[in-house]
Design a protein around this nucleic acid. Structure first.
Length: 502
DNA sequence: CCTCCGACTTGGCGCGATATAT
DNA sequence: ATATATCGCGCCAAGTCGGAGG
């Protein structure tokens, strides 16, 4: 390939100042440079027109005075004639207000969502095929947070789809489990791959829609994004398909964050108990009585039970290391959950743990919205390093345990010796963690400390690995109502800048 | 209707700055 | 102090959605 940048200059002197104008790629003119002559500005009527660029004698293509739109300027791309806009930054009041409106609308959906869900359940059983397709598609958009999927130019653009443009080849059915597997390329050619149990009626419908069709036929041949959005408008003013993503993302965040509620309650209870104890102590300082000791004993038992429950919760959490789509909870599940609300193993007085907890909630949303990223280039290397650190901890543990065994044996024995061919990352031999004449309980303490260290290290590895393909930023910026985050931060006294930057 | 397109949101990526671990 | 991880931002392409125009 041959590439050459050309300047359009009348003389050598001009050339020094003149910018490159376009590129030649294999002698074809590619991407022309954009000049002010290409740009249309949008200004107030009474605003002075800024001087065009640094180049003398250049002017703007046009000046607009349209206060109904938010763009400041635009030009047409020389390659595909697409309009390129200039807008104010996201942190501007302009954008902020639009954002606020968006979340207000999503909030309004909450008042309608029960009705809408009843409606699509009914439509899914309708005799009318259009209604059946509208109902089923709306169900998928709500339940799986799919994009609407508008039609696009098939020859020029990438073959990506959304709900309404799904084809037969994108769905597989598991009759026994009533599960479907969706496998297609969505926006930005990001793969959506999800096996999920769905509503039985939706399952039946989708199967029927696909029956007798070719692989590349549309599943929903009777509807499209426009008709679906028109249908949604009848159920709620201003409703469109993408609002389900905003709504479900925000409500998922809320639900995830609420899971910390019992932990907070327990924490407050403990603080209160401490306070009471102190109070009682000062009151009865002179005359200590028996019943109080009994009460104190009772509280310690209660705390022990709670801790045991937390430990059990942690264990069950350990299980799935593999990537897995969140199974959306049905209303029934939610009911059941209310009764078995667990105290989580999160220390809510620890800022880092709170941030970690918030990120977990954020991740649930990102997985729902299928926000993926490619595995960072240094991921494997970085995991290997963590693995090495883990081995180091394990080696330290092994040494401590052998030393403990040595201590327990008769003291007649010679010196303690620990054989290890473990090397640090730099290839140096490892340093011993036990010292001669170390007391037995010191070793026990060390072991406990190392076990804890190993635990947190394992957790870190797990988090890193499960995060490697999940992008948290998009849902945070575009989908989760910031008011939910703010409320959470206030409630747990978590500084907001730990979550949002200025 | 359908198609096109204007306006705006959403999205992943890469890079340099900044925070954190060693 | 240095190495490494993470953040945060700019970039601009790829979507959504509504309305104009045929």
């Amino acid at each position: 390939m041959f590439i050459c940048l050309l300047q359009l200059a009348k003389s050598q002197k001009d050339a020094e100042a003149a910018p490159f104008v376009f590129a030649l790629v294999d002698w074809l003119r590619e991407k022309r440079r954009i000049f002010s002559e290409d740009v249309i500005l949008n200004l107030s009527e009474d605003s002075p027109v800024p001087i065009a660029s640094g180049l003398k004698g250049h002017c703007w293509r046009d000046i607009a005075h349209d206060c109904r739109v938010t763009w400041l300027a635009f030009y047409r791309d020389s390659i595909n004639d697409q309009v390129k806009y200039m807008y104010l930054a996201a942190q501007s009041g302009f954008k902020g207000q639009q954002d606020f409106l968006k979340y207000e609308k999503a909030r309004r959906l909450k008042q309608f969502v029960v009705k809408i869900r009843e409606d699509y359940s009914k439509k899914m059983k309708s005799n009318d095929s259009i209604e059946r397709q509208l109902g089923t598609a709306t169900y998928l958009i709500d339940f799986l947070a799919l994009r609407v999927g508008g039609e696009k130019d098939t020859d020029e653009e990438a073959d990506t789809v959304g709900c309404c443009s799904l084809r037969v080849e994108h769905i597989a059915f598991d009759e026994d489990k009533k599960e479907i597997t969706l496998d297609f390329l969505g926006k930005d050619s990001i793969r959506y791959y999800n096996t999920v149990k769905i509503d039985p009626q939706a399952f039946k419908n989708l199967q029927a829609f696909c029956r007798g069709k070719k692989a590349d036929d549309d599943v929903f041949e009777s509807i499209n994004s426009t008709s679906l959005n028109n249908h949604l408008k009848q159920l709620m003013p201003g409703l469109s398909a993408k609002m389900f993503r905003t709504y479900n993302a925000s409500i998922t965040l809320q639900q995830e964050l609420d899971k910390l509620q019992p932990t907070l309650a327990k924490f407050k209870e403990e603080v209160e108990r401490e306070r009471m104890k102190k109070e009682a102590k000062t009151k009865t300082k002179k005359a200590k009585t028996e019943p109080q000791a009994a009460a104190a004993a009772a509280t310690t038992t209660a705390t022990a039970t709670a801790t045991a429950a937390a430990a059990a919760a942690e264990d069950s959490d350990e299980a799935p290391l593999k990537e897995q789509k969140v199974k959306r909870e049905t209303d029934k599940d939610k009911e059941e959950q209310k009764e078995t609300q667990e105290v989580l193993n999160v220390d809510i007085s620890d800022v880092n743990q709170l941030v970690q907890f918030y990120n977990d909630a954020n991740r649930a949303v990102a997985i729902l919205c299928n926000h993926q990223r490619s595995i960072p280039k240094q991921h494997a290397a970085s995991m290997a390093r963590l693995q090495h650190q883990l081995s180091a901890i394990e080696e330290d543990l092994r040494e401590c345990e052998e030393f403990l065994a040595f201590c327990k044996k008769d003291k007649q024995q010679k010196q303690f010796k620990f054989k290890s061919d473990f090397k640090t990352l730099k290839g140096e031999p490892r340093k011993s963690v036990v010292r001669e004449g170390m007391k037995e309980d010191a070793v026990l303490k060390k072991i406990a400390q190392l076990k804890k260290k190993k635990q947190t290290h394992l957790l870190r590895m797990h988090i890193k690995d499960s995060n490697k393909t999940v992008a948290l930023g998009t849902s945070k910026i575009n989908y989760m109502d910031p008011r939910i985050t703010v409320a959470f931060c206030k409630k747990y006294e978590l500084p907001i800048e730990k979550i949002f930057n200025k």
